[in-house]
Every structure is written in structure tokens, then in C-alpha cells.
Design a protein around this nucleic acid. Structure first.
Length: 99
DNA sequence: CACATGACCTAAC
DNA sequence: TGTTAGGCCATGT
């Protein structure tokens, strides 16, 4: 599977590559990813990059969660619901605090 | 170039 | 513990 990085901005490429480095069963926070790309304060930009990503099924964006380990959004099919299912399948136990 | 929006984060009430 | 306010960064119009 190859991705047309041409339709993505350099920043998006950086973010996606960083996410692709996330080990299976492990989840990172937007801030962690932002730090990984060299911009600890660009957590928002990271979220934006993921929101604009068109290769959701290939990009493990479901491994990116909020600072509290809670998922905040998911543009792919199913939304948060799908994200939870994928994470559960990956072996990551999700702790639902607010039911 | 300036304004407005968004899958965020932190602090304070 | 839950909600509100402010700040930061990149993208699109």
C-alpha cells in the first residue's frame, strides 16, 4: 500500500509517519505526536492533519487519543465507535470512565 | 496577507 | 468532578 503524499502537506506527512511508528497495542496522545514531529505545541495541528487524512484505513489514526487517553474524534467510518472496536482488536484495553 | 475553523491541552471556578 | 475560558499551530477561503 502506497500513499500519495503529494496530496498531503509536509506537515501531514510528518504526522502520518510519526503515527505509523506507533507500536501495535500502544496509543499515543496528540501532544506526544506533536513532540515527535518537533512541535510540542502543535497538538491542534496534529488533530487537523488527521482530520484531513484520506487514508484513514491505512493510517493508524485510531492509535492517537487525547491527553486523558480518551478518543476525541474520528473522521473515518463509525467514528468513535469504530475507533474503540479497532483499539480493542489491537489488544489495547480501554478504560471507560464515564460509561 | 488576514480572518475563521478544528479529531487539542492546560488552568481555573 | 464537571464545565468554562484562553492559548497555539496548520489549513483553507
Amino acid at each position: 500500500m502506497k500513499i500519495n503524499w503529494s496530496k498531503y502537506t509536509p506537515f501531514q506527512q510528518k504526522v502520518y509517519k510519526a503515527i505509523l511508528k506507533i507500536p501495535k497495542g500502544q496509543v499515543w496522545t496528540y501532544k506526544q505526536v506533536a513532540i515527535k514531529i518537533g512541535k510540542p505545541r502543535a497538538a491542534r495541528a496534529v488533530g487537523h492533519a488527521l482530520a484531513r487524512n484520506q487514508d484513514a484505513p491505512f493510517i493508524p489514526c485510531h492509535r492517537v487519543v487525547g491527553s486523558t487517553g480518551k478518543m476525541v474524534g474520528y473522521s473515518a467510518s463509525g467514528g468513535i465507535r469504530r475507533k474503540l472496536e479497532i483499539l480493542k482488536k489491537e489488544g489495547y484495553k480501554i478504560v471507560i470512565k464515564s460509561r
